[in-house]
Design a protein around this nucleic acid. Structure first.
Lengths: 222, 222
DNA sequence: GAACAGACTAAACAAATGTTCAGTCCGCCG
DNA sequence: CGGCGGACTGAACATTTGTTTAGTCTGTTC
Protein backbone atom coordinates (compact mmCIF):
# COMPACT_ATOMS: atom_id res chain seq x y z
CA UNK A 1 0.00 0.00 0.00
CA UNK A 2 2.73 2.36 0.91
CA UNK A 3 4.28 3.86 -2.12
CA UNK A 4 4.16 7.58 -1.63
CA UNK A 5 7.80 7.61 -2.42
CA UNK A 6 8.15 3.97 -3.28
CA UNK A 7 10.60 2.49 -5.68
CA UNK A 8 9.46 1.26 -9.04
CA UNK A 9 11.27 -0.14 -11.99
CA UNK A 10 11.74 1.96 -15.08
CA UNK A 11 10.44 0.89 -18.45
CA UNK A 12 12.84 0.02 -21.23
CA UNK A 13 12.65 1.76 -24.54
CA UNK A 14 11.10 -0.91 -26.70
CA UNK A 15 12.90 -0.71 -30.06
CA UNK A 16 16.67 -0.25 -30.19
CA UNK A 17 16.14 2.87 -32.25
CA UNK A 18 18.94 4.44 -34.22
CA UNK A 19 21.49 5.29 -31.60
CA UNK A 20 21.89 8.85 -32.84
CA UNK A 21 18.19 9.52 -32.57
CA UNK A 22 18.29 8.13 -29.09
CA UNK A 23 21.23 10.30 -28.12
CA UNK A 24 19.45 13.36 -29.45
CA UNK A 25 16.38 12.60 -27.38
CA UNK A 26 18.42 12.10 -24.23
CA UNK A 27 20.34 15.30 -24.84
CA UNK A 28 17.15 17.24 -25.50
CA UNK A 29 15.48 15.87 -22.38
CA UNK A 30 18.45 16.83 -20.29
CA UNK A 31 18.72 20.29 -21.79
CA UNK A 32 15.02 21.00 -21.54
CA UNK A 33 14.95 19.99 -17.90
CA UNK A 34 18.12 21.78 -16.99
CA UNK A 35 17.82 25.05 -18.85
CA UNK A 36 14.08 25.38 -19.25
CA UNK A 37 12.11 24.48 -22.28
CA UNK A 38 12.81 27.76 -23.97
CA UNK A 39 16.43 28.71 -23.88
CA UNK A 40 17.38 25.42 -25.47
CA UNK A 41 18.74 25.62 -29.00
CA UNK A 42 18.86 23.02 -31.69
CA UNK A 43 22.57 23.54 -31.86
CA UNK A 44 23.03 22.86 -28.17
CA UNK A 45 21.13 19.60 -28.40
CA UNK A 46 23.00 18.60 -31.53
CA UNK A 47 26.31 19.41 -29.93
CA UNK A 48 25.48 17.41 -26.79
CA UNK A 49 24.47 14.47 -28.93
CA UNK A 50 27.52 14.82 -31.14
CA UNK A 51 25.57 15.30 -34.33
CA UNK A 52 24.78 18.10 -36.72
CA UNK A 53 21.85 20.44 -36.12
CA UNK A 54 20.32 19.29 -39.36
CA UNK A 55 20.06 15.73 -38.10
CA UNK A 56 17.92 16.85 -35.22
CA UNK A 57 15.28 18.25 -37.51
CA UNK A 58 15.77 15.33 -39.89
CA UNK A 59 14.61 12.99 -37.13
CA UNK A 60 12.01 15.14 -35.42
CA UNK A 61 10.80 17.47 -38.10
CA UNK A 62 11.39 20.60 -36.07
CA UNK A 63 12.33 21.92 -32.69
CA UNK A 64 8.70 21.65 -31.65
CA UNK A 65 8.77 18.04 -32.75
CA UNK A 66 11.66 17.38 -30.40
CA UNK A 67 9.67 18.90 -27.59
CA UNK A 68 6.63 16.79 -28.40
CA UNK A 69 8.69 13.64 -28.51
CA UNK A 70 10.21 14.44 -25.13
CA UNK A 71 6.71 14.87 -23.77
CA UNK A 72 5.62 11.53 -25.15
CA UNK A 73 8.71 9.82 -23.85
CA UNK A 74 8.53 11.25 -20.35
CA UNK A 75 4.82 10.71 -19.98
CA UNK A 76 5.05 7.08 -20.99
CA UNK A 77 7.96 6.73 -18.60
CA UNK A 78 5.99 8.19 -15.72
CA UNK A 79 2.93 6.17 -16.48
CA UNK A 80 5.22 3.18 -16.29
CA UNK A 81 5.53 -0.10 -18.11
CA UNK A 82 1.93 -1.11 -17.56
CA UNK A 83 0.20 2.13 -16.84
CA UNK A 84 1.47 2.50 -13.36
CA UNK A 85 -0.93 5.34 -12.77
CA UNK A 86 -3.87 3.09 -13.24
CA UNK A 87 -2.68 0.84 -10.47
CA UNK A 88 -3.46 3.70 -8.16
CA UNK A 89 -7.01 2.57 -7.63
CA UNK A 90 -5.58 -0.77 -6.52
CA UNK A 91 -3.90 0.87 -3.57
CA UNK A 92 -0.86 2.42 -5.17
CA UNK A 93 -0.35 6.07 -4.42
CA UNK A 94 -0.52 6.72 -8.12
CA UNK A 95 2.26 7.30 -10.59
CA UNK A 96 3.74 9.74 -8.14
CA UNK A 97 5.97 6.97 -6.95
CA UNK A 98 7.57 6.42 -10.31
CA UNK A 99 7.58 10.11 -10.92
CA UNK A 100 9.48 11.04 -7.82
CA UNK A 101 11.85 8.16 -8.32
CA UNK A 102 12.52 8.83 -11.96
CA UNK A 103 16.01 9.62 -13.04
CA UNK A 104 17.10 13.20 -12.52
CA UNK A 105 16.75 14.36 -16.15
CA UNK A 106 13.23 13.02 -16.38
CA UNK A 107 12.31 14.59 -13.07
CA UNK A 108 13.68 17.94 -14.10
CA UNK A 109 11.84 17.77 -17.37
CA UNK A 110 8.61 16.94 -15.58
CA UNK A 111 8.94 19.90 -13.29
CA UNK A 112 9.38 22.17 -16.27
CA UNK A 113 6.48 20.58 -18.08
CA UNK A 114 4.15 21.06 -15.14
CA UNK A 115 5.22 24.64 -14.76
CA UNK A 116 4.96 25.51 -18.40
CA UNK A 117 1.74 23.58 -18.67
CA UNK A 118 1.93 21.60 -21.88
CA UNK A 119 -1.26 19.79 -22.83
CA UNK A 120 0.37 16.47 -22.00
CA UNK A 121 1.41 17.74 -18.58
CA UNK A 122 -2.06 19.07 -17.90
CA UNK A 123 -3.61 15.75 -18.76
CA UNK A 124 -1.11 13.93 -16.58
CA UNK A 125 -1.81 16.15 -13.61
CA UNK A 126 -5.54 15.70 -13.93
CA UNK A 127 -5.08 11.99 -14.30
CA UNK A 128 -3.02 11.80 -11.14
CA UNK A 129 -5.54 13.85 -9.20
CA UNK A 130 -8.30 11.59 -10.35
CA UNK A 131 -6.53 8.42 -9.31
CA UNK A 132 -5.39 9.92 -6.04
CA UNK A 133 -8.97 10.91 -5.28
CA UNK A 134 -10.04 7.33 -5.91
CA UNK A 135 -7.23 6.06 -3.72
CA UNK A 136 -8.19 8.39 -0.88
CA UNK A 137 -11.85 7.50 -1.28
CA UNK A 138 -10.90 3.85 -0.93
CA UNK A 139 -8.99 4.66 2.22
CA UNK A 140 -11.96 6.55 3.51
CA UNK A 141 -14.18 3.51 3.03
CA UNK A 142 -11.62 1.31 4.71
CA UNK A 143 -11.28 3.72 7.57
CA UNK A 144 -7.66 4.77 7.34
CA UNK A 145 -8.31 8.09 5.62
CA UNK A 146 -10.17 10.86 7.36
CA UNK A 147 -13.42 11.82 5.68
CA UNK A 148 -13.25 15.19 4.00
CA UNK A 149 -15.84 17.88 3.39
CA UNK A 150 -14.31 18.24 -0.01
CA UNK A 151 -12.61 15.06 -1.21
CA UNK A 152 -11.78 16.28 -4.66
CA UNK A 153 -10.18 19.50 -3.48
CA UNK A 154 -8.25 17.57 -0.88
CA UNK A 155 -6.97 15.17 -3.51
CA UNK A 156 -5.83 18.02 -5.73
CA UNK A 157 -4.05 19.76 -2.88
CA UNK A 158 -2.54 16.48 -1.75
CA UNK A 159 -1.11 15.93 -5.20
CA UNK A 160 0.25 19.46 -5.41
CA UNK A 161 1.97 18.91 -2.08
CA UNK A 162 3.49 15.63 -3.15
CA UNK A 163 4.74 17.33 -6.27
CA UNK A 164 6.15 20.30 -4.37
CA UNK A 165 9.60 18.69 -4.08
CA UNK A 166 9.57 18.48 -7.84
CA UNK A 167 9.07 22.21 -8.14
CA UNK A 168 11.08 23.39 -5.15
CA UNK A 169 13.61 20.59 -5.07
CA UNK A 170 16.59 22.90 -5.31
CA UNK A 171 15.37 25.08 -2.48
CA UNK A 172 14.49 22.14 -0.27
CA UNK A 173 17.84 20.58 -0.92
CA UNK A 174 19.50 23.76 0.18
CA UNK A 175 17.21 24.41 3.14
CA UNK A 176 17.49 20.88 4.44
CA UNK A 177 21.20 20.78 3.90
CA UNK A 178 21.23 17.47 2.08
CA UNK A 179 23.43 16.62 -0.85
CA UNK A 180 20.75 15.58 -3.28
CA UNK A 181 17.16 15.71 -2.20
CA UNK A 182 16.20 13.15 -4.78
CA UNK A 183 18.77 10.58 -3.79
CA UNK A 184 16.91 7.64 -2.34
CA UNK A 185 18.16 8.22 1.17
CA UNK A 186 17.25 11.89 1.34
CA UNK A 187 13.91 11.42 -0.34
CA UNK A 188 13.01 8.70 2.08
CA UNK A 189 14.10 10.74 5.05
CA UNK A 190 12.08 13.72 3.90
CA UNK A 191 9.06 11.58 3.15
CA UNK A 192 9.10 10.47 6.77
CA UNK A 193 8.55 14.05 7.89
CA UNK A 194 5.85 14.54 5.28
CA UNK A 195 4.01 11.38 6.25
CA UNK A 196 4.17 12.47 9.84
CA UNK A 197 2.54 15.75 8.88
CA UNK A 198 -0.11 13.88 6.93
CA UNK A 199 -0.72 11.52 9.84
CA UNK A 200 -0.69 13.81 12.86
CA UNK A 201 -1.20 17.20 11.32
CA UNK A 202 0.76 20.26 12.27
CA UNK A 203 -1.57 22.01 14.65
CA UNK A 204 -2.75 20.57 17.95
CA UNK A 205 -6.13 22.25 18.09
CA UNK A 206 -8.65 23.94 15.88
CA UNK A 207 -7.71 27.52 16.49
CA UNK A 208 -6.34 27.98 13.00
CA UNK A 209 -9.64 26.78 11.62
CA UNK A 210 -11.48 29.14 13.92
CA UNK A 211 -9.25 31.94 12.80
CA UNK A 212 -10.21 31.06 9.25
CA UNK A 213 -13.87 31.19 10.20
CA UNK A 214 -13.33 34.63 11.66
CA UNK A 215 -11.73 35.86 8.47
CA UNK A 216 -14.53 34.40 6.41
CA UNK A 217 -17.15 35.96 8.66
CA UNK A 218 -15.51 39.35 8.54
CA UNK A 219 -15.29 39.05 4.79
CA UNK A 220 -18.96 38.20 4.59
CA UNK A 221 -19.85 41.18 6.75
CA UNK A 222 -17.84 43.55 4.63
CA UNK B 1 -2.43 35.18 14.28
CA UNK B 2 -4.09 33.68 11.31
CA UNK B 3 -2.54 34.89 8.15
CA UNK B 4 -1.68 31.82 6.17
CA UNK B 5 -3.51 33.39 3.35
CA UNK B 6 -4.24 36.69 5.01
CA UNK B 7 -4.64 39.97 3.30
CA UNK B 8 -1.94 42.57 3.53
CA UNK B 9 -1.51 45.97 2.03
CA UNK B 10 0.91 46.49 -0.81
CA UNK B 11 3.80 48.91 -0.58
CA UNK B 12 3.87 51.99 -2.72
CA UNK B 13 6.81 52.69 -4.95
CA UNK B 14 8.55 55.48 -3.09
CA UNK B 15 9.64 57.93 -5.79
CA UNK B 16 7.27 58.82 -8.62
CA UNK B 17 9.87 57.63 -11.07
CA UNK B 18 9.78 58.55 -14.72
CA UNK B 19 6.50 57.10 -15.91
CA UNK B 20 8.09 55.41 -18.91
CA UNK B 21 10.62 53.62 -16.75
CA UNK B 22 7.82 52.51 -14.54
CA UNK B 23 5.78 51.24 -17.46
CA UNK B 24 8.76 49.30 -18.75
CA UNK B 25 9.24 47.65 -15.38
CA UNK B 26 5.58 46.68 -15.16
CA UNK B 27 5.61 45.32 -18.68
CA UNK B 28 8.79 43.35 -18.02
CA UNK B 29 7.41 41.91 -14.80
CA UNK B 30 4.27 40.83 -16.55
CA UNK B 31 6.11 39.32 -19.49
CA UNK B 32 8.65 37.52 -17.35
CA UNK B 33 5.94 36.01 -15.21
CA UNK B 34 3.71 35.09 -18.09
CA UNK B 35 6.13 33.77 -20.68
CA UNK B 36 9.02 32.66 -18.52
CA UNK B 37 12.14 34.59 -17.86
CA UNK B 38 13.76 33.45 -21.06
CA UNK B 39 11.53 33.80 -24.02
CA UNK B 40 10.98 37.45 -23.27
CA UNK B 41 12.47 39.89 -25.75
CA UNK B 42 13.46 43.49 -25.32
CA UNK B 43 11.20 44.33 -28.19
CA UNK B 44 8.20 42.69 -26.55
CA UNK B 45 8.71 44.62 -23.33
CA UNK B 46 9.26 47.85 -25.22
CA UNK B 47 6.15 47.28 -27.28
CA UNK B 48 4.05 46.53 -24.20
CA UNK B 49 5.31 49.68 -22.55
CA UNK B 50 4.82 51.72 -25.71
CA UNK B 51 8.44 52.77 -26.01
CA UNK B 52 11.37 51.97 -28.23
CA UNK B 53 13.64 49.01 -27.49
CA UNK B 54 16.52 51.40 -27.08
CA UNK B 55 14.84 53.11 -24.16
CA UNK B 56 14.70 49.85 -22.25
CA UNK B 57 18.43 49.44 -22.32
CA UNK B 58 18.85 53.18 -21.77
CA UNK B 59 17.12 52.82 -18.41
CA UNK B 60 18.36 49.42 -17.32
CA UNK B 61 21.68 49.01 -19.08
CA UNK B 62 20.81 45.67 -20.57
CA UNK B 63 18.27 42.90 -20.63
CA UNK B 64 19.94 41.37 -17.63
CA UNK B 65 19.60 44.70 -15.88
CA UNK B 66 15.86 44.59 -16.43
CA UNK B 67 15.76 41.15 -14.90
CA UNK B 68 17.77 42.27 -11.89
CA UNK B 69 15.53 45.25 -11.34
CA UNK B 70 12.44 43.05 -11.49
CA UNK B 71 14.00 40.85 -8.86
CA UNK B 72 14.70 43.81 -6.60
CA UNK B 73 11.24 45.18 -7.10
CA UNK B 74 9.39 41.94 -6.44
CA UNK B 75 11.47 40.99 -3.47
CA UNK B 76 10.93 44.33 -1.78
CA UNK B 77 7.25 44.01 -2.57
CA UNK B 78 7.03 40.58 -0.98
CA UNK B 79 9.01 41.58 2.02
CA UNK B 80 6.48 44.35 2.38
CA UNK B 81 6.50 47.95 3.47
CA UNK B 82 8.16 47.26 6.81
CA UNK B 83 9.77 43.93 6.26
CA UNK B 84 6.66 41.91 6.53
CA UNK B 85 8.67 38.73 6.65
CA UNK B 86 10.30 39.80 9.88
CA UNK B 87 6.92 40.10 11.54
CA UNK B 88 6.69 36.36 11.21
CA UNK B 89 8.29 35.78 14.55
CA UNK B 90 5.59 37.98 16.03
CA UNK B 91 2.91 35.51 15.02
CA UNK B 92 2.49 36.27 11.38
CA UNK B 93 2.76 33.30 9.06
CA UNK B 94 5.63 35.03 7.35
CA UNK B 95 5.69 36.92 4.12
CA UNK B 96 3.74 34.10 2.59
CA UNK B 97 0.64 36.10 3.26
CA UNK B 98 1.72 39.02 1.17
CA UNK B 99 3.21 36.68 -1.36
CA UNK B 100 0.09 34.71 -2.01
CA UNK B 101 -2.01 37.83 -2.01
CA UNK B 102 0.24 39.77 -4.32
CA UNK B 103 -1.11 40.91 -7.61
CA UNK B 104 -1.14 38.31 -10.34
CA UNK B 105 1.90 39.57 -12.25
CA UNK B 106 4.02 39.63 -9.12
CA UNK B 107 2.85 36.18 -8.16
CA UNK B 108 3.62 34.79 -11.56
CA UNK B 109 7.04 36.36 -11.53
CA UNK B 110 7.74 34.89 -8.12
CA UNK B 111 6.82 31.42 -9.27
CA UNK B 112 9.24 31.73 -12.15
CA UNK B 113 11.94 33.13 -9.92
CA UNK B 114 11.62 30.26 -7.46
CA UNK B 115 11.71 27.74 -10.25
CA UNK B 116 14.64 29.27 -12.05
CA UNK B 117 16.39 29.87 -8.77
CA UNK B 118 17.88 33.33 -8.97
CA UNK B 119 20.11 34.27 -6.05
CA UNK B 120 17.47 36.67 -4.81
CA UNK B 121 14.82 33.97 -4.92
CA UNK B 122 17.06 31.53 -3.11
CA UNK B 123 17.69 34.03 -0.35
CA UNK B 124 13.99 34.77 -0.07
CA UNK B 125 13.08 31.12 0.24
CA UNK B 126 15.65 30.52 2.94
CA UNK B 127 14.48 33.61 4.75
CA UNK B 128 10.89 32.45 4.72
CA UNK B 129 11.83 28.99 5.94
CA UNK B 130 13.79 30.53 8.77
CA UNK B 131 10.96 32.75 9.90
CA UNK B 132 8.40 29.99 9.52
CA UNK B 133 10.56 27.74 11.65
CA UNK B 134 10.63 30.42 14.31
CA UNK B 135 6.89 30.85 14.05
CA UNK B 136 6.27 27.13 14.40
CA UNK B 137 8.72 26.93 17.30
CA UNK B 138 6.75 29.68 19.02
CA UNK B 139 3.54 27.74 18.45
CA UNK B 140 5.20 24.68 19.85
CA UNK B 141 6.11 26.53 23.04
CA UNK B 142 2.58 27.88 23.31
CA UNK B 143 1.13 24.47 22.73
CA UNK B 144 -0.82 24.93 19.51
CA UNK B 145 1.78 23.35 17.25
CA UNK B 146 2.67 19.70 17.52
CA UNK B 147 6.27 19.04 18.49
CA UNK B 148 8.31 17.65 15.65
CA UNK B 149 11.25 15.30 15.53
CA UNK B 150 12.68 17.55 12.90
CA UNK B 151 11.42 21.11 13.22
CA UNK B 152 13.61 22.57 10.54
CA UNK B 153 12.70 19.98 7.93
CA UNK B 154 9.05 20.38 8.83
CA UNK B 155 9.27 24.13 8.38
CA UNK B 156 10.90 23.74 4.98
CA UNK B 157 8.29 21.26 3.81
CA UNK B 158 5.53 23.41 5.24
CA UNK B 159 6.79 26.36 3.23
CA UNK B 160 7.07 24.31 0.06
CA UNK B 161 3.48 23.20 0.54
CA UNK B 162 2.22 26.71 1.09
CA UNK B 163 4.05 27.74 -2.05
CA UNK B 164 2.68 24.84 -4.07
CA UNK B 165 -0.28 26.86 -5.35
CA UNK B 166 2.26 29.32 -6.68
CA UNK B 167 3.89 26.60 -8.75
CA UNK B 168 0.86 24.53 -9.65
CA UNK B 169 -1.72 27.28 -9.65
CA UNK B 170 -2.83 26.62 -13.19
CA UNK B 171 -3.31 22.91 -12.56
CA UNK B 172 -5.12 23.46 -9.28
CA UNK B 173 -7.37 26.00 -10.89
CA UNK B 174 -8.28 23.49 -13.54
CA UNK B 175 -8.56 20.52 -11.18
CA UNK B 176 -10.70 22.41 -8.70
CA UNK B 177 -12.83 23.92 -11.40
CA UNK B 178 -12.62 27.46 -10.11
CA UNK B 179 -12.32 30.54 -12.26
CA UNK B 180 -9.19 31.99 -10.76
CA UNK B 181 -7.52 30.16 -7.94
CA UNK B 182 -5.88 33.32 -6.74
CA UNK B 183 -9.01 35.36 -6.55
CA UNK B 184 -9.65 36.08 -2.89
CA UNK B 185 -12.72 33.88 -2.73
CA UNK B 186 -11.14 30.81 -4.28
CA UNK B 187 -7.90 31.19 -2.37
CA UNK B 188 -9.78 31.43 0.88
CA UNK B 189 -11.93 28.43 0.06
CA UNK B 190 -8.91 26.37 -0.84
CA UNK B 191 -7.03 27.49 2.24
CA UNK B 192 -9.87 26.10 4.32
CA UNK B 193 -9.18 22.63 2.95
CA UNK B 194 -5.46 23.07 3.47
CA UNK B 195 -5.84 24.24 7.05
CA UNK B 196 -8.09 21.30 7.71
CA UNK B 197 -5.36 19.00 6.43
CA UNK B 198 -2.83 20.77 8.62
CA UNK B 199 -5.10 20.53 11.63
CA UNK B 200 -6.52 17.03 11.41
CA UNK B 201 -4.10 15.34 9.07
CA UNK B 202 -5.14 13.10 6.24
CA UNK B 203 -4.70 9.65 7.73
CA UNK B 204 -6.60 8.34 10.71
CA UNK B 205 -3.95 6.04 12.05
CA UNK B 206 -0.25 5.38 11.86
CA UNK B 207 -0.24 2.66 9.28
CA UNK B 208 1.39 4.86 6.68
CA UNK B 209 4.17 5.60 9.12
CA UNK B 210 4.52 1.92 9.86
CA UNK B 211 4.64 1.22 6.16
CA UNK B 212 7.44 3.74 5.94
CA UNK B 213 9.28 1.98 8.74
CA UNK B 214 8.93 -1.28 6.87
CA UNK B 215 10.43 0.23 3.74
CA UNK B 216 13.27 1.72 5.73
CA UNK B 217 13.94 -1.57 7.48
CA UNK B 218 13.95 -3.48 4.23
CA UNK B 219 16.27 -0.92 2.75
CA UNK B 220 18.62 -1.28 5.69
CA UNK B 221 18.61 -5.05 5.34
CA UNK B 222 19.42 -4.89 1.68
C1' DG C 1 26.66 -4.19 -60.22
C1' DA C 2 22.77 -0.70 -60.36
C1' DA C 3 19.32 1.48 -57.88
C1' DC C 4 17.33 2.93 -54.09
C1' DA C 5 16.54 4.57 -49.03
C1' DG C 6 17.74 6.61 -45.22
C1' DA C 7 21.25 8.42 -41.89
C1' DC C 8 23.96 12.18 -41.84
C1' DT C 9 26.56 16.72 -42.89
C1' DA C 10 28.26 21.46 -44.48
C1' DA C 11 26.75 25.55 -45.97
C1' DA C 12 23.57 28.81 -46.47
C1' DC C 13 19.01 31.15 -45.44
C1' DA C 14 15.74 34.53 -43.46
C1' DA C 15 14.14 35.99 -39.24
C1' DA C 16 14.76 37.50 -34.63
C1' DT C 17 17.74 38.61 -31.04
C1' DG C 18 20.43 42.17 -27.68
C1' DT C 19 22.93 46.18 -28.21
C1' DT C 20 25.03 50.49 -30.24
C1' DC C 21 25.01 54.87 -32.48
C1' DA C 22 23.81 59.25 -33.89
C1' DG C 23 20.71 62.40 -33.21
C1' DT C 24 16.09 64.92 -31.70
C1' DC C 25 13.37 66.77 -28.25
C1' DC C 26 12.51 69.21 -23.92
C1' DG C 27 12.97 71.18 -19.32
C1' DC C 28 16.18 73.49 -16.33
C1' DC C 29 20.09 76.34 -14.63
C1' DG C 30 23.46 80.05 -15.54
C1' DC D 1 19.38 83.63 -24.42
C1' DG D 2 22.77 79.60 -24.46
C1' DG D 3 23.95 75.44 -23.22
C1' DC D 4 23.63 71.25 -20.85
C1' DG D 5 21.81 66.76 -19.53
C1' DG D 6 18.65 63.25 -19.71
C1' DA D 7 14.55 61.10 -21.83
C1' DC D 8 13.67 59.20 -26.01
C1' DT D 9 13.79 57.42 -31.03
C1' DG D 10 14.98 55.19 -35.77
C1' DA D 11 18.14 52.81 -38.00
C1' DA D 12 21.74 49.96 -38.09
C1' DC D 13 24.96 46.38 -36.00
C1' DA D 14 26.71 41.63 -35.26
C1' DT D 15 25.14 37.38 -33.52
C1' DT D 16 22.14 33.64 -32.86
C1' DT D 17 18.04 31.47 -33.89
C1' DG D 18 15.27 27.43 -36.56
C1' DT D 19 15.09 25.64 -40.92
C1' DT D 20 16.31 24.42 -45.86
C1' DT D 21 18.98 22.75 -49.46
C1' DA D 22 22.06 20.04 -51.82
C1' DG D 23 24.82 16.61 -51.34
C1' DT D 24 27.81 12.39 -49.33
C1' DC D 25 28.09 8.07 -47.38
C1' DT D 26 26.47 3.33 -46.22
C1' DG D 27 23.87 -0.56 -46.30
C1' DT D 28 20.17 -3.33 -48.52
C1' DT D 29 17.48 -5.11 -52.41
C1' DC D 30 16.84 -6.66 -56.96
Amino acid sequence: MFSLFGVTSMPESSPPESSARRRILDAALDRFGRDGVNRVTVRAIASDAGVSPALVVHHFGSMEGVRRECDRYVMSMVRGPDHLVEDAAAGNASGLAGMLEAAAPVRRYLARAFLDGSPAANALFDEIVEHTAAWLAGGEREGWVRPSENPHARAAIYVSWLLAPLAFGAHLTRALGVDDLHATGSALWMSRVAIDMFTHGVFTDERMLHAWDAVEKERGAR
